[in-house]
Amino acid sequence: MMALDRGDRPGRRDRDLRITTRTPWPMMLPALVAVLFLLLPLAGLLVRAPWTDLPQLLSEPEAFQALRLSLVCATAATGLSLFFGIPLAWILARSRRPGISVLRALVTLPLVLPPVVGGVALLVALGRRGLVGRYLDEWFGYSLPFTTTAVILAETFVAMPFLVITVEGALRTANQGLEEAAATLGSKPFATFRRVTLPLIAPSLVAGSVLTWARALGEFGATITFAGNFPGTTQTMPLKIYLLIQNDPDAGIALSLVMLLVSVAALALLRDRWLSSGARL
């Protein structure tokens, strides 16, 4: 909230106070309820946390394993999203071909699709008996489900659209005059993209990457459906937490705290880069 005010109102501290008192109370009340609603569950997590047993709960090798796997997979998924997502975003933003808006709607579908459905879709497409997966199995004797690769793919499937829409938005609003200038000076299209366009959209690229990474990190439904759940191979933090909560709630809450911490860190990074440097969604 404060961060939003910051942009157009310099000297934020004292001014913020005055803004608060000027807010009409019919707005104030629902806003307060919203804040409470959003923060109360997190406070609950802190209150219920088994603080004394925390070091012991977190030093479990399986917890560390799950955290490591989560970080590795989310990072890999972000990498894949960048490699394939940036060109896609560029085409969506620049192409004048008919049907491009339909394409945009289709590739951002995973944003609104329940992740479990995404997992089922991945299974019937890339699973051992799937549309494409059966050939992987027949020709190479390789099957994706139950592998770490499957976790990365599930996360990429769910998270890449975040990157695509963020970068596409930035490409649309970027100053194309600069690209044209580069072109008239003899720069080849790909060189222009690499040396003019990419630096122009850098802030959005960072914001999009953080969003994508955070979404991948929290992925649950598609992962458990497509990749399964096995410690060290496919069991990421959300899966581990889900199973722990049923049996050992304290340990589950302890791991939830770790995820909360990681999320706060990601958000801090996002806020600084995203809201202050003028990047747009």
């Binding site: 699973g127 008996r129 399964g228 191979t233 889900y242």
Partner: peptide, 21 residues
Amino acid sequence: TPVSNEVDVKSTLSKITLGEA
């Protein structure tokens, strides 16, 4: 050594009905 520890018996079964396991 399983390839996956599923959340309940129905999801275990579904991995078999789908032919993935």
